[in-house]
Design a protein around this nucleic acid. Structure first.
Lengths: 204, 204
DNA sequence: ACCTGAACACCGTTCAAGT
DNA sequence: ACCTGAACACCGTTCAAGT
């Protein structure tokens, strides 16, 4: 209830506008009453992140570890972007709960089936997760440094990049000025999954 | 001056305690006076991130693109962790300035020397940067999910992981419970750099 | 050009008193 | 068990009036 109200505030006003008072307003309740049900704002933010992560569905394992890892990545992205304004919460809050562990369990399962030893698999897992989080954080903050996706933005960005007078940036300005989220995500995931599976094969 | 005061506040009190009033207090000035020199709190946060990023030193290129990329990664980490409490700013703020572009220029330069075509190099750059940012964000938030580094923390974490009753997590609990920042960073960077350079060689 | 008192519209949170 | 008035110690920011 409180978590749902918090998500409603985030969806409509943005995460910066989330306050105990705003949540109380939505529920038609005195904000102080919330403290009878939740410990404070920090707890509320964790609860929101956890609730969103719980939406992750298990993937059905196939014969292909690469395909499975890509499916997990896609599902993680789906959940993280389901409420774009809340995504930084899902991506940066450190959760000790089972919800936070589910995707980790899923990746470890794929790696074990692929024959990666535990010690190696935790390192690979961490590298993969870091890459996913970095990629998704960039995606939700619509980073100017990493390129716009609308035409006017692309043009503006391109000339700004030229103005910096850095030769390699000038050379690559067309590519730097645009950012296609789906395409970039697929590229990064493919690269990282291939890297992980090359490692897995090394150890077999 | 204002930026230096803001960094002093962040270093001693943490980023959550940074306020216009706290900066004014350090400078012995009315917080409202700050608005004559800076546009507001958001601008101040950008200015702090930018000032910290400016500390990046150029690396001297060698014959080895792999070594150069690792040097750039190490330098980025040094700068990001120079003020650990300010790291999230450096890692998540989107900067349009030249300071933000310097590391990008450096990576592109290495990739160009290695013979990677522009279109490919921007994708590789983005994947690499995302992996670095994800890795460093985890490092500074001392993520419980990703393991502690002190002995008591490791033991506590290990039994918590066991309690989750997820078989693969239980199997890998020893590796999951500990997190050695230096080692994890080196592992992730080596993996990502090798992945990038394998791509580079494909295209030559 | 710079500073600031008064002021506005907010925050998170505690606690004693109420039902 | 739950709610809330009064209260505290904060925020960012504007603007008119001062030097």
């Amino acid at each position: 209830m409180i978590v749902a109200a918090a998500i409603a505030v985030i969806d409509s006003e943005g995460i910066a506008e989330l306050s105990m008072r705003a949540v109380g307003r939505i529920l038609g309740v005195d904000p102080k009453s919330l403290y009878h049900h939740i410990d404070g704002k920090e707890e509320l933010l964790d609860a929101v992140a956890e609730h969103l992560l719980e939406q992750m569905r298990a993937i059905e394992p196939t014969r292909s570890p690469e395909r499975d890892l890509r499916s997990i990545a896609a599902e993680f992205r789906r959940v993280a972007l389901a409420h774009p304004q809340a995504a930084p919460l899902v991506l940066t809050r450190q959760l000790a709960s089972v919800a936070g562990l589910a995707p980790i369990e899923a990746v470890l399962d794929v790696l074990r089936r692929a024959g990666v030893p535990d010690r190696e698999s935790v390192h690979l897992l961490r590298t993969l997760v870091a890459g996913l989080i970095g990629t998704l954080l960039r995606e939700v903050s619509a980073s100017p440094t990493f390129g716009a996706s609308d035409l006017a933005g692309i043009a503006a960005r391109e000339s700004a990049l030229n103005a910096a007078r850095l030769p390699n940036i000038a050379r690559a300005r067309r590519q730097l000025a645009r950012y296609d989220s789906d395409q970039e995500f697929d590229y990064a995931v493919k690269l990282m999954v291939d890297m992980v599976s090359a490692r897995a094969k090394d150890r077999t």
